[in-house]
Simulated assay, not measured.
Amino acid sequence: MNLTQFPRRNYLQGPTPIEAAPRFSKALGGKVNVFIKRDDLLPGCAGGNKTRKLDFCIADAIEKGADTIITCGPVQSNHCRLTLSWAVKEEMDCHLILEERVPGSYKEDGSGNNFLFNLMGVKSTQVVPGGSDMMGEMEKLAKELEAQGKKPYIIPGGASNVLGATGYVACAQEIQQQLFQQNINITDIVVPSGSAGTHAGVAVGMYGINSGIRVSGINVSKPKDVQEENVYKLAYETAKAVGVCGELPRGEITCFDGYVGAGYSLPTDSMVEAVKLLARTEAILLDPVYSGKVMAGMIDLIRNDYFAPGTNVLFLHTGGSPALYAYTDTFK
């Protein structure tokens, strides 16, 4: 795989740490040794995994002469926060279209990421009902901006296209090099599976370098069959784009959907347990929408012996802790 063929903005400042979590592992009975890949520490306002994706996506936007970024996400979108932050850095306008997946969840003066949107000076924010055609809404806005003389560039939700997923192909290569340098033999990696880009990219990267590491995705919204198809489709396209030899086997994509609860972004008891347990054993913050539910899934897999006893398991921490402050009542 030769990723240098794709333009980048070089937003990363070296590899993010891989940290052992011995107190957390002990609290789970010491069945496996948990390690955490700290992509919550990536650059960009309050950090998070989207910076790896935007490194490629915004480079493409600039190469195509764009002066304005349009993107979308749910009302507490980490992706929207980070897209806005890098647009600010690049002196580009940024317009957000927010999907109110839970009726009444958007608050103009809300905390968490919504507060940060306004703090960073978002150019405009539109809120649309759950289930809206988000690409259609962004294309409509793009036409309006073009009529005003702007040059907009649309980044899909989660930056989950081939370019965005390529950021996590690169992350897989980074992880493998770190594991070699630190002499850690990982058997499994657990990743979030939402808009599909992170999961697809890691799966392609780990397969492409013949790592032998099993990748398991924890769903945050969709049923298992739907999500596995979404991830595989993007992974297949990404594998072709980055030059993976041979066809990506469908067996490389595995999702678990038992930790979503009543719906996307709606709190669950297992998420609350996961957030509190990691905070109280390792002083690491998860978020209630993505990483908290993903960690809840990983905890359950550990307790039910999905991973071989005594093995080393890596959790990909994608960030999102600013959303905690919009959920303070959940943790009281």
Results as ranks from 00 to 15, higher is better:
A308V: 13
L179P: 00
L119K: 10
D133W: 06
A262F: 11
V242P: 04
A66P: 04
R214I: 11
Y207Q: 07
R214V: 13
N183W: 06
P103W: 11
V294K: 00
Y264G: 01
D60K: 07
V244A: 09
C94V: 14
G48V: 01
A296W: 02
L12Q: 00
G29Q: 06
Y236R: 12
S291I: 08
L119E: 09
K140Q: 15
A326V: 09
V204Q: 02
D305F: 13
Y327A: 11
C57R: 01
Y290R: 05
S111A: 15
I70C: 07
T187W: 05
T330Y: 11
P152N: 12
K332S: 14
P152Y: 06
K140M: 15
Y259K: 01
N312W: 09
K224S: 05
A283T: 12
P43K: 08
A142L: 12
V88Y: 04
G258N: 08
R52N: 10
K224I: 13
F307W: 07
F256C: 08
V75T: 06
F331N: 11
A200D: 04
M206P: 00
L316P: 06
P152D: 13
R214D: 10
S132M: 10
V32M: 01
K50C: 13
I299N: 02
Q126D: 15
G258A: 05
Q148V: 10
H317D: 09
S85A: 07
V75F: 03
L278K: 01
Q126S: 14
M206N: 06
